[in-house]
Simulated assay, not measured.
Amino acid sequence: MNRNLQRAATRPDDGEEGATLDELYRRHAPWLGAMVRKQFGGRLGAEADDVVQETYARLAPHAAGRIRSPQALLMRIASNLAKDLLRRRAVRGRHVEQSAPAPDCAVGGDALSDLLIKEMILSMPEQYRDVFVLSRFHGMTYEEIATRCGLTIKSVEWRLSRAIAHCVKPVQD
């Protein structure tokens, strides 16, 4: 952390009475970004800047000039946002692990199994099929699929769950 950020982190918040959100942002955003990166290390990566932006978005509805300790409030909000982000990542990771195919049901057992799997996949609606194939056969993460298909991660999760439901529904004669 450079000298200016260290000084900003330790100096008392004087002269903040009547400050606008823009002034708070200009004064504290570099410091807040450095503190978030320091506290959470590489776990946030490039999303540390997003956490800083979201912190100020959460602060916007409040009267910025009435905040007595802006650095403390900003750090508390940013810390909570970062923890929520890391928690959501962990839950998504567990969901991906749980929905991964078991090793004993690998594709390629025999010609009949391959044909049945191919028919099942081709009978899916296209929007579900694309997500399913990218996830199950190309091993892509939800984030990678979302980026490639121009979807949100939530949409990828929803479409994959619908594709899996399609796979397990009983065959109709």
Rank of each mutant, 00 (worst) to 15 (best):
residue 2 N to S: 10
residue 4 N to A: 15
residue 18 G to A: 04
residue 21 L to M: 08
residue 25 Y to E: 11
residue 26 R to V: 08
residue 27 R to Y: 07
residue 35 M to H: 14
residue 38 K to D: 15
residue 40 F to C: 03
residue 41 G to A: 00
residue 43 R to P: 03
residue 47 E to Q: 06
residue 49 D to M: 00
residue 51 V to K: 01
residue 59 L to Q: 06
residue 60 A to L: 10
residue 61 P to H: 13
residue 63 A to C: 10
residue 67 I to K: 08
residue 68 R to D: 08
residue 69 S to V: 05
residue 71 Q to Y: 11
residue 73 L to Q: 12
residue 74 L to R: 09
residue 76 R to N: 15
residue 78 A to C: 10
residue 83 K to W: 14
residue 85 L to K: 10
residue 88 R to E: 14
residue 92 R to C: 02
residue 92 R to Y: 01
residue 93 G to R: 15
residue 101 P to D: 00
residue 102 A to V: 00
residue 104 D to N: 00
residue 104 D to S: 00
residue 109 G to I: 02
residue 110 D to Y: 07
residue 112 L to S: 04
residue 114 D to H: 02
residue 120 M to G: 02
residue 121 I to P: 00
residue 122 L to W: 07
residue 122 L to Q: 12
residue 125 P to R: 13
residue 132 F to Y: 14
residue 133 V to W: 05
residue 133 V to H: 06
residue 135 S to A: 15
residue 136 R to L: 00
residue 138 H to I: 01
residue 139 G to Q: 01
residue 143 E to F: 10
residue 150 G to N: 02
residue 150 G to K: 04
residue 151 L to A: 04
residue 152 T to P: 03
residue 154 K to S: 15
residue 156 V to D: 09
residue 160 L to S: 01
residue 165 A to G: 13
residue 165 A to F: 04
residue 171 V to N: 02
residue 171 V to H: 03
residue 172 Q to P: 00
residue 172 Q to L: 03
